[in-house]
Simulated assay, not measured.
Amino acid sequence: MVASKVLFVIALLFCSLINVVVIANDNFDQDVDITWGNGRAAILNHGKLLTLSLDQASGSGFQSKNEFLYGKFDVKIKLVPGNSAGTVTAYYLRSQGSTWDELDFEFLGNLSGEPYIVHTNVYTQGNGNREQQFYLWFDPTVKFHTYSILWNPGHVVFSVDGKPIREFKNMEPYGVPYPKSQSMRLYSSLWNADEWATRGGLVKTNWSEAPFTATFRNFKANACVWSNGVSSCNVTSSNSSNSSGDDQREWRSQELDSTSQKRLKWVQKKFMVYNYCTDTKRFPQGLPLECTVTTK
């Protein structure tokens, strides 16, 4: 009987370690906190669905309950339909402090019938100015699409429906800072940015169309949870029942294979509308170092 109790306690401890290594609950009640909006955000369908809304008084937002240091983060989003000009739906990772790290997806609203623009940015040690923007090759308001951020020691990859659209490599050996030591929490928000979001602020938000609503489902963080200065991935290499060991090893060392590199080039050739690494007018003293370094 004593031995059985000991085994039961060990099993509980093992499961608790497993659950902090990989978060894959697909349940917004368990995974996130609504942080602002005064009732404009809602978790529905027993945690399976989350909506953010924006009206003239306020937007809304949520954040993950956990902080992470490396991981792969996926969520399905159906963006604001119709005339969404001036609105921004953001989905990003961010650390705290004045020298923060940040990995951004921002979806810039539009006039009806015009393509959404996906705005991406990478901040390291409080410095950003690394914007790349893309048109989407589908209407993101009709059905859900998956938006992913892969963050591991080698690179950051932004993907849409499994297609990489942007890669930011770890080029620390060349003097380029990389987000590696600050834990980040996942955030999302829907807010009014009509001073800059649509055609540089020329098109303002039409509040007669409000409330604007974006819908989220299938949030998954296959990630290392950071708590009290310790990463869960240093505690155990075990994994939850929702993910195999191969899944975790894959994202922790994942690189872009030849097929993914071809897809990345295809997206950037066909759909990129702005790249800071080609904006010589913006950087008259020379392009940022990561734009000119040649890596293997």
Rank of each mutant, 00 (worst) to 15 (best):
V156F: 13
L264K: 12
G61T: 00
G162Q: 11
C233D: 03
D33H: 14
W100A: 13
S237F: 15
G39T: 05
K48F: 09
L287K: 05
L93V: 06
P173K: 01
L52F: 03
S84W: 03
V267S: 07
L289Q: 04
N239T: 05
F283D: 00
W36Q: 01
Y187S: 09
V75H: 10
A210W: 09
D257L: 08
F134W: 13
N170A: 14
L12R: 01
C15G: 05
I23F: 06
A42W: 02
K163Y: 06
P177R: 09
D161A: 07
F212N: 01
L186H: 10
M184K: 15
N19M: 08
P140T: 03
V273P: 09
L54C: 02
F219G: 07
W151G: 01
N170K: 09
F219I: 12
E209L: 12
G37N: 03
G245D: 02
K180L: 15
N19D: 03
T87E: 00
V156W: 15
F62T: 01
D104M: 09
G286K: 12
N45Q: 10
Q133E: 08
E290K: 01
Q248I: 13
T215S: 09
V235D: 02
N19T: 07
N218E: 09
L54Y: 00
T51P: 07
E209M: 15
R94A: 11
M184Y: 13
Y147F: 15
L136G: 03
C15L: 15
Y135K: 12
Y147L: 09
S240Q: 04
A41H: 08
H119D: 07
S260G: 04
V6C: 10
F158Q: 14
S244V: 10
E67A: 12
S227Q: 10
D33P: 00
V230C: 11
P153C: 13
T89S: 08
A210T: 02
S243N: 07
V230Y: 12
F219L: 10
V118Y: 09
K78S: 02
R40F: 10
T295V: 14
K296C: 11
I18Y: 05
D33I: 09
A85Y: 06
Q261N: 05
D55P: 06
Q132T: 11
R40A: 09
D194N: 15
S237I: 05
V293K: 08
W151C: 01
A223C: 04
L49D: 08
S159R: 15
H145I: 01
C277I: 02
W191A: 00
D26Q: 14
F144A: 03
L50N: 01
T198G: 12
G128F: 05
K270Q: 11
D161V: 04
D194L: 15
A11C: 10
L12T: 02
A85W: 01
P288A: 03
G97R: 01
L44F: 04
G47H: 06
T259H: 13
V32R: 10
S181H: 15
N127D: 00
S159P: 05
T51E: 01
L190C: 05
L150H: 02
R40V: 00
K296L: 11
Y178D: 03
F62H: 07
S112W: 11
Q96V: 04
I149S: 05
G109W: 05
R249L: 12
D246N: 14
K269T: 14
W266C: 07
W36H: 07
L79G: 01
Q132Y: 13
V157A: 14
